[in-house]
C-alpha cells in the first residue's frame, strides 16, 4: 500500500487507422466525379393547345430572325438589315464582320430609337433605376435551324445570344448600381433582368409564322 503500483493503460495501436482512412479516401476519389454539370438554361414554351396558338403576331421591327442552316452558316435578319456569316468564327467577329453579339445588343437596346429596330416602351423598374425606355416587352429573337444543322453550331449561336444579354446586364449594373452584375443583391439582379429579359424563341420552323408579312 505504501507504494501504489502505477497501473498502465495499454496503448491502442492506431497506426493502421491512417491506412484504413486512406483506403476510404481513395475509394471516394475513384467513384466520384468532381465535374458539376453546367449548361445553357432555357425555358421551352408549353405545348400548343390549339392551332390558333401556333401563330405569333409580332411586328416586323420587333423581330430578329437568326437562322443556322445545314452548312452551319448563319443568317441574321432584322428590318434594319441582313447579315450573313459563313461560319462560327465569323459570327464571333474573327472574320472582320460585325459579330452577332453586337448586332443583338444593338437590336435589344435600339439606342437611337430607330423605327426599324424594336419599339421602345417606357417602363418603371423601381428605385434607383426608375422609368426607362426599353424593348423588354417588344423584342423577340427567333432562333431557327435546319434539320441537319450541327448541335455544335446551334450551341455556339445560343452562347453568342446569351453573351449579348449578359453584357447588356453587366453594362446596366455598372450604370445604375456602380457594381458588377455578379456583386449585386438578388433583388437588384432581378431588376436588371427585367430590363433585359432573354426573349429567345426556339419555335419549330413549321410552327413559325412571321406576323408582319400578312
Amino acid at each position: 500500500m505504501a507504494e501504489k503500483k502505477k497501473r498502465k493503460v495499454p496503448n491502442l495501436n492506431s497506426s493502421s487507422m491512417a491506412d484504413v482512412s486512406f483506403l476510404l479516401l481513395t475509394f471516394f476519389l475513384m467513384t466520384s466525379s468532381m465535374d458539376t454539370d453546367s449548361g445553357l438554361a432555357r425555358q421551352l414554351p408549353p405545348p400548343p393547345q390549339s392551332e390558333e396558338q401556333l401563330k405569333m403576331d409580332i411586328q416586323r421591327r420587333n423581330l430578329m430572325v437568326v437562322l443556322v442552316n445545314y452548312q452551319n452558316q448563319i443568317m441574321v435578319r432584322t428590318q434594319a438589315g441582313d447579315e450573313w456569316y459563313n461560319n462560327i468564327a465569323e459570327m464571333e467577329g474573327r472574320g472582320g464582320k460585325v459579330p452577332l453579339k453586337e448586332k443583338v445588343k444593338e437590336f435589344v437596346l435600339n439606342p437611337n430609337n430607330r423605327p426599324d429596330l424594336p419599339e421602345l416602351i417606357e417602363k418603371d423598374f423601381g428605385p434607383p433605376i426608375g422609368k426607362v425606355l426599353v424593348t423588354a416587352d417588344s423584342h423577340v429573337i427567333s432562333l431557327q435551324n435546319d434539320a441537319t444543322t450541327s448541335y455544335k453550331a446551334y450551341i455556339a449561336v445560343q452562347n453568342e445570344l446569351v453573351k449579348a444579354y449578359n453584357e447588356l446586364r453587366e453594362e446596366a449594373a455598372r450604370k445604375y448600381f456602380g457594381k458588377s452584375y455578379k456583386e449585386l443583391l438578388p433583388e437588384q439582379q432581378e431588376q436588371i433582368k427585367n430590363m433585359y429579359p432573354q426573349r429567345i424563341s426556339e419555335a419549330e420552323p413549321k410552327d413559325y409564322k412571321l406576323g408582319g408579312e400578312k
Binding site: 449548361g39 421551352l44 408549353p46
Partner: peptide
C-alpha cells in the same frame, strides 16, 4: 428538335443544354 418537342409534350419545360 424532336427531343425538345417530346419534352414540351411532357411539360418538362425547364431545360439546359449541357456544355
Amino acid at each position: 428538335s424532336d427531343v425538345k418537342q417530346a419534352l414540351r409534350k411532357a411539360y418538362a419545360l425547364k431545360i439546359s443544354y449541357s456544355a
